Amino acid sequence: MHNLITDVAGVRVGHAHDHKLASGVTAILFDKPAVASIDVRGGGPGIRDGALLEPVNTVEQIDGFTLSGGSAFGLDSGGGVQAWLAERGRGFAIGNATIPIVPGAVVFDMINGGDKAWGRFSPYRDLGYAAADAAGDSFALGSVGAGLGATTATLKGGLGSASATTPGGVTVGAIAVVNAIGSATIGDGPWFWSAPFEQDGEFGGLGMPESFTPDMLKVRLKGAAAASAIENTTLVAVVTDANLTKPQVKRLAMLAQTGFARAIYPVHAPLDGDVVFAAATGVKPVEPLAGLTELGTIAANTVARAIARGVYEATALPFKDAQPAWRDRFGSKR
């Protein structure tokens, strides 16, 4: 176990980004098609192929997910990942046609100081292809891929990941792009809201403050009164090696979404586009009631940890007035 979503066998992750652009793409690929669904709770989501993930719709399995910066422009990244998969004969067969199925979602990072004057066509399709081509078992965290340009209310956001195993031996992993309207840390201090779920000091091991003051609970919003509904989003993909039906994967996504509330304050606002994708690779059986509940609870904890790691591992953008990273404010990693 490497505490990454790729601890689930058959899952690979790749990043591509452009520091001048201050944006990027992260691709999550499956070696074999996976059963997938979605849960959306933010008020301003930007999603590609989200509707087909609902249990009432026909397509059961997908080939990958794409997470991207660039707001609506970033939806082009799915085409790049799709092209990479098509070259390898992957996809949903319809007659003599094969269509790779690659749902995705985007965060808004358009006013973070990067150069977004790209001309007629955005770079996200090419970045998506490059991210797919880079996919492997290990990958970097922090200001990379889709997390390169991410921010929060108080500190630089980023990309995080975590994994866990249930007592029955089912593995679940999460990857998060943290670009929230709220904060992942408590007040102006170094403590993470996710602290009760931390494992092995993965985001500093600082625990919770000794007590809470009214100032710690004050709502801190990115951009304050100027905040816009399209400027914020946390994206998560949760993957397990459990054998689940599409409705059960939908329930897993819903359960996993509660990890947002354990990690970000406030969350699920009209100012966010919060999305959880979930997928199951179908290897290990899970009891459909108590077993799925246990798996979803552990998935939610894993999401909370991934969100904190995304902020903890981030580095600041090299632009005037850029948000400080956690380690800029509170010291280097342990």
Rank of each mutant, 00 (worst) to 15 (best):
A306E: 00
E202Q: 08
K333R: 13
V59S: 04
H2L: 08
L127K: 13
L235A: 08
L252T: 00
F108L: 04
A105H: 03
T26H: 11
P288Y: 06
R309T: 01
V286G: 06
G74Y: 09
I175F: 07
G331P: 08
M254A: 11
L235K: 05
P45Q: 11
V25A: 08
V172G: 08
L148C: 06
E54D: 12
R309H: 05
T233I: 07
G44S: 14
I186S: 05
G204W: 03
D39S: 10
F30G: 01
A34N: 07
A22F: 09
W118Y: 15
A134C: 07
T98S: 11
A27Y: 07
V8C: 06
S23I: 09
F121W: 13
P45W: 13
V283Q: 14
F121S: 15
A253Q: 04
K250N: 00
S161H: 02
L289I: 14
G114F: 12
V56L: 09
G74N: 09
A36L: 00
S228Q: 15
H15Q: 13
R220Q: 09
A314D: 01
F192S: 06
I298F: 01
A97P: 01
S71Y: 07
M1H: 11
D63A: 10
G158K: 07
E198L: 02
D188Q: 14
D274L: 03
G291D: 06
E54N: 12
T154K: 13
A9D: 15
A97I: 11
L4G: 03
A237C: 13
G259L: 02
A83L: 14
L127T: 12
P45S: 11
I99V: 15
P247Q: 08
D126M: 13
G187Q: 02
R41S: 14
D188P: 00
S71H: 06
G80D: 05
P196R: 09
G310Q: 09
G70W: 10
S37D: 00
I101W: 01
P45I: 12
I38E: 01
N57P: 00
G296C: 05
A261V: 03
I230Y: 13
V144M: 02
L289D: 15
E202I: 05
F203K: 02
P247A: 10
T185Q: 01
I111N: 03
T154F: 04
S71A: 14
L148Y: 15
V107W: 04
Y129G: 04
P324Y: 05
Y124E: 08
G104Y: 10
V238W: 00
G24Y: 10
A226F: 06
Y129D: 11
P209F: 06
L52H: 04
R329N: 06
R48G: 05
Y265Q: 12
L292P: 07
M208Q: 12
T151L: 14
A135V: 03
Q61C: 12
T233A: 02
E287M: 09
V219P: 00
P190N: 05
G42T: 08
I264W: 08
G78A: 12
Q61T: 15
P45T: 13
W326E: 02
L21Q: 06
P266S: 06
A9V: 11
P196L: 10
L292Y: 01
I47W: 00
F277H: 01
G282L: 13
G42A: 06
R88P: 04
L292M: 03
L235Q: 04
F65Q: 02
V13S: 02
G273Y: 02
V40P: 01
R88E: 11
K222W: 02
G296H: 01
D215M: 11
